[in-house]
Write a protein that binds this DNA or RNA. Structure first.
Length: 254
DNA sequence: ATGTCAGATGTTATCTGA
């Protein structure tokens, strides 16, 4: 079984790349972030023709998430239960007996900004909701664009990024608190190439210089942990013409 | 060099967000 996450930075632009990627990388479920589409514009026909069921939750211009799956997702939830939010950031569903939560965590902009305050509140609400989900779903995967680099080894220049957005102690504490619920970072279950990133800024030739951050993650519950066989970042789509700034992350379970 | 990309507004460019 394979699950994946990918921030596509506009599905309108990236749909051909998504379809190419799915053809080359058949997965059981894939969550997308930053679709940037209102629900009436979502490309259901094209994704259906590729052999995937899909649930989607979007808004104009910003954010927007989707859950693609080979088998239909059940008990679909949009956004964090009990957290009033005008931003479309979360979609969850049960696929093949696994609770799949796809999330586009707030960026936070800067540690002294209002958007950072929103990020902290959102993270708190997410944690309490995931805690509840784990009580009813032993087999659970939380994946998406976390906009958090959990450790210095997830940052190409940790000195320059110290205390900056994605790397603040407060964000890293929230990441650890999610692990404290009984989740594990699937990527770190395996030896990985050094300087493994999932995002590279479009500017500064960052991809060519491999200057990036690992901010896209797949967390799996303790019940799933013994079944995790691999976890990889697929850099290939970042080499495309007009790429997303993020690469997909894939987890393989037996 | 805050150096690119995407979407929106409303142009033949400027703003916001990432």
């Amino acid at each position: 079984m394979k699950f994946a996450t990918w921030n596509v930075n506009s599905l309108a632009v990236r749909l051909p790349q998504l379809l190419d990627w799915l053809a080359a990388n058949p997965v059981d479920a894939l969550v997308l972030q930053e679709t940037k589409l209102t629900d009436d514009k979502f490309p259901t026909l094209e994704i259906g023709a590729a052999g995937y069921q899909v649930q989607w939750f979007g808004q104009k211009t910003y954010n927007g998430v989707a859950l693609l799956s080979r088998k239909p997702a059940t008990d679909v939830v949009k956004n964090i239960l009990g957290f009033a939010d005008e931003q479309a950031r979360v979609i969850a569903g049960t696929v093949d007996g696994v609770r799949v939560i796809g999330a586009y965590f707030p960026n936070g902009q800067a540690p002294d900004s209002e958007k950072f305050v929103y990020k902290m509140g959102w993270l708190e609400a997410l944690r309490e909701w995931v805690r509840a989900e784990l009580k009813t779903h032993e087999r659970l995967v939380l994946m998406g664009d976390f906009n958090i680099a959990p450790e210095d080894r997830d940052v190409y220049d940790p000195v320059a990024w110290a205390g900056q957005i994605h790397c603040t102690p407060q964000e890293r504490e929230h990441f650890q608190a999610l692990l404290g619920l009984g989740l594990v970072d699937a990527f770190r279950l395996f030896e990985q190439p050094p300087k493994s990133w999932s995002w590279w800024d479009y500017r500064n030739l960052a991809f060519r210089k491999n200057q990036g951050l690992r901010i896209d993650h797949i967390l799996v519950s303790e019940a799933l942990r013994p079944h995790v066989k691999a976890c990889e970042i697929d850099k290939q789509p970042r080499r495309n013409e007009r790429p997303s700034d993020h690469a997909p992350v894939i987890v393989t379970l037996d």
